[in-house]
Design a protein around this nucleic acid. Structure first.
Lengths: 244, 244
DNA sequence: TCTAAAGTATGATATTTGTCATACTTCACT
DNA sequence: AGTGAAGTATGACAAATATCATACTTTAGA
């Protein structure tokens, strides 16, 4: 009996870690909520676990709330006209996803799927809008976040439109480095297939394979399976931006 | 003497048309402001006139406020790495521009220049933030606007990355049609050079010229100088989206 | 009205990139 | 450990696109 109670208690703890003690929250838009607001959040939120490859939400669905990543790595992608996946963004601990659809009053514009096992909290729409309406600081934070996202996106449009495939690949490697950082070996700290990289760059898988080999020949990166080691970041920046 | 007074009165009216009676405002994010808020706006705003080709603000500068288009057509573009212009957005009467930079706390990410003679009001940063902080409805409107802009941009990223030049051109023509509408002749109601179209599509001017000729041969459009007549919108949609 | 400059158009050619075919390698699963 | 499936790699070829050259047309300004 005691075991059962303990088990339930642990299970509850795991499924609903407290926002007050959540490390990911410190890095998120929820970082400056007061304790009242946190209690409210805790009461209404739920935390779910997803295995690598699982889908959190799908493009086209109506958003009922937003998701706050507690742990893990997530890719956001949309389907192109010919059925080809286009990766438009990544999320990691502390990032929120799925909120834009509520703000724009449009269906979800991307599919979120896990690049590794992840823990993701769900915060219902009402809670989100309550915060926006009652807390101007939170509202400004969301505005800043959305504004930055838009700014980044319009930068990406220019790049996609004007740069060669090789430059775009170099740029994506740098973007991945910024997003996920480097491990102790100077390798980008996320594992993506060549196909997934192609779906970021917007090219064919074969092209990515060839161009990665080129970058290796030019001593800008080293390759070891899926691991990509950054050898010459400055060189990649020059290549990507044509500053030469 | 009377003439002088009249002249001054007219001049003042022209340079500072009242927000309360502004037709463009009805279509803008400022549409539901109350009379107190309008008086505040009128006191602090200023209206400027720009000739075709003139620049309203430049990429990289720090925004001191936002601009609300009263009349005219404006293109927003950024410089690509090799000095090539990339058009990322358009604005017309009722649209606001330059606000994203204040929200993202980053320098202006695009240059705004007039496609035709335009009247544009300037609203200082403080006024804008005062509205956001005091009026949750206004705040939500800006959030919705920014969210939609981001959504559109990420859609555009997918298109740029995956579609052929011809598909992108078709898409841009449809976008121009949505933005500026058609005149009585079914022609897109804005005049752009082939080079400017190329700077939207992200390709060379020659490619645009050739592809426009192709579209004409396929009876999707008709050409008459800078005027582009939409003959088969459904056909263009099919071409752009590969729905066939 | 004339002229220079800008914009438009077209051809030839080089380069890039996509596509298809094929083989090798790694990984998960029994 | 063996097997099949997925992922990675490479070559050959086709298609798309950029680039350069050149000529024609329109526009703005003297």
């Amino acid at each position: 009996m005691i075991f059962v109670i303990l088990h339930l208690a642990m299970s509850e703890k795991l499924n609903n870690p407290s926002c007050a003690t959540c490390g990911a929250r410190q890095k998120s838009v929820f970082c400056s909520l007061n304790s009242d607001q946190l209690v409210q959040m805790d009461e209404h939120k739920g935390c779910d676990f997803y295995k690598k490859g699982e889908t959190i939400f799908k493009e086209g669905a109506i958003a009922r709330g937003l998701f706050c990543v507690n742990k893990g790595k997530i890719k956001l992608s949309r389907m192109g006209p010919s059925g080809k996946e286009q990766i438009v963004r990544f999320a990691k601990g502390g990032d929120i996803i799925g909120y834009n659809s509520m703000l724009s009053r449009r269906p979800l514009s991307a599919t979120a799927s896990c690049l590794e096992d992840s823990a993701v909290c769900f915060i219902p729409s009402q809670q989100f809008f309550a915060l926006i309406k009652k807390d101007p600081n939170f509202s400004l934070k969301i505005l800043e976040l959305t504004a930055k996202n838009w700014d980044d996106a319009s930068r990406l449009i220019t790049d996609m439109a004007q740069k060669t495939t090789k430059q775009r690949l170099a740029e994506m490697l740098l973007w991945l480095k910024e997003t996920f950082g480097l491990d102790e070996d100077n390798c980008i700290d996320v594992k993506l297939s060549r196909e997934e990289i192609a779906n970021m760059v917007g090219t064919a898988t074969e092209a990515v394979i060839r161009l990665l080999a080129d970058l290796k020949k030019e001593n800008l990166i080293a390759l070891e399976g899926k691991k990509i080691k950054m050898l010459d970041i400055h060189g990649l920046v020059m290549l990507a931006d044509l500053i030469d």
